[in-house]
Simulated scan of single mutants.
Amino acid sequence: MNTHVSILASCTLAFGIAGTVHAQEVDRSDWPSSFTVGTASQGGTYFAYGSGWANLVSDELGISGGAEVTGGPMQNMALVHTGDLAFGMTTLGPARESMEGTNPIAPGLQMTNACAMFPMYQTPFSVTALTSSGITSISEIPGGAKIGFGPAGSTSDTYFPRMMDTLGVNYERRNGGWSDLGGQLQDGLLDVIAFAAGIPVPAVSQLEVQTNVNIIQFTDEEQQKLMEAFPVSAFDIPGETYSTLEAPATSVAMWNFAIANCDLPESFVKEVVAVVMSDNERMVNIHRASRSTLPENADKNTVLMWHPGAAAWFRENTDIEISDDMVFGG
């Protein structure tokens, strides 16, 4: 079910010393010796973002850590819930479905042992086609169009087909990693790719370098329909995100959160959150989507229970109110 790609951080002696100093007053006796972050397919934002923060935490805390390619938010919820992975990343829509027992990976299993760690960014839903296709709007997508929806079980694959149904689009569904789908679009094997990923999406940026593309926005009416039918909010993709855009593009978006197995030591998770939340500039250097990886966005979590270590950090360092009934074991 997984493609295992380990991007383990190299922890030099210098980094080990730095990490020891960073948390020298913290009892590490129950900490794991290593950790892995569940991301998604290569070519997507989760992979770039997750690899970056895994390496950052590894360097700062002096613990071997890295990222693993997975099927995305749904699979990450399952793997973190079972403890197969320490950390992962998910979108709040798939997180809710997983907690309610409707995750397609394990139907009926209520995945309540995956806890919130910190806010990541919003995932906009956007559509890309080759300029040569002549497709410039949702209404111009031809009947029976071959649409790539990303990896099976991903946020995009979970919600975008339903969104296309809501907007009256008739299509043939295709799945795959974002890089592979980008190649298929360029080769004429797909008509459209429906992306749900943090921006800029690496696969779209790569396509822009190699060919001419149209980034298709929703009309105001289409945006309203989607907001009424799905757990999304209004979002404008900034014009500077892609060279193709000349102005902001109307979209909808869903929040992403980093997650931890709820049984991980409180002090360990608290230190991980501190590394990520304490210096946003470092995170932005990893991926521009991290501009939203800010402590004040912790209040966007209305779905997941907070890990006690994460809740402790936010309570001690921000004005965010986290009630006891939203803390695992609280």
Rank of each mutant, 00 (worst) to 15 (best):
G83W: 06
D84C: 05
L85A: 10
L85T: 10
L85V: 10
A86D: 13
A86I: 02
F87D: 00
F87M: 09
G88D: 05
G88H: 04
M89P: 00
T91D: 15
P94V: 08
A95K: 09
A95H: 12
E97N: 12
E97K: 13
S98A: 15
M99I: 12
N103A: 13
N103F: 10
P104S: 10
P104N: 08
P104Q: 12
I105Q: 09
I105P: 01
A106Q: 08
P107A: 06
G108D: 08
L109A: 11
Q110T: 09
Q110C: 12
M111G: 05
T112S: 05
N113R: 15
C115S: 14
A116T: 11
M117W: 03
M117R: 02
M117P: 01
F118N: 03
P119T: 08
P119F: 13
Y121P: 00
Q122H: 12
Q122P: 00
T123M: 14
T123V: 15
T123I: 14
T123Q: 12
P124A: 07
F125G: 04
S126V: 14
S126A: 08
T128M: 08
A129T: 02
A129W: 00
L130P: 02
L130V: 05
L130D: 03
T131D: 09
T131Q: 14
S132V: 01
S132K: 14
I135C: 07
S137F: 09
S139L: 04
E140N: 08
G143Y: 04
G143A: 15
G144P: 06
G144L: 08
G144Q: 05
G144R: 10
A145T: 06
K146V: 07
K146R: 15
G148V: 02
G150F: 13
P151I: 13
P151F: 06
A152I: 14
G153N: 11
S154F: 07
T155V: 13
T158Q: 13
Y159K: 03
F160G: 00
F160T: 13
P161K: 10
R162W: 11
M163P: 03
M164N: 09
D165T: 11
D165R: 13
T166S: 12
T166E: 15
T166H: 07
T166F: 04
L167T: 06
V169H: 09
N170I: 09
N170V: 11
Y171T: 02
E172I: 14
E172N: 11
E172P: 03
E172L: 13
E172C: 01
R173I: 13
R174P: 00
R174V: 10
R174D: 06
G176K: 00
G177H: 05
W178H: 00
W178S: 03
W178V: 00
S179W: 11
D180H: 09
D180T: 12
D180A: 14
D180V: 14
G182Y: 10
G182S: 13
Q184G: 01
Q186N: 12
G188I: 05
G188M: 05
L189K: 14
L190A: 01
V192F: 08
V192I: 15
V192D: 03
I193C: 10
A194C: 06
A194D: 02
F195K: 00
G198W: 05
G198A: 15
G198N: 04
G198T: 03
I199M: 06
I199T: 12
P200F: 12
V201A: 13
V201R: 01
P202Y: 03
P202M: 07
A203E: 05
A203H: 04
A203F: 04
A203K: 04
Q206G: 04
L207D: 02
L207Q: 02
L207H: 01
L207N: 02
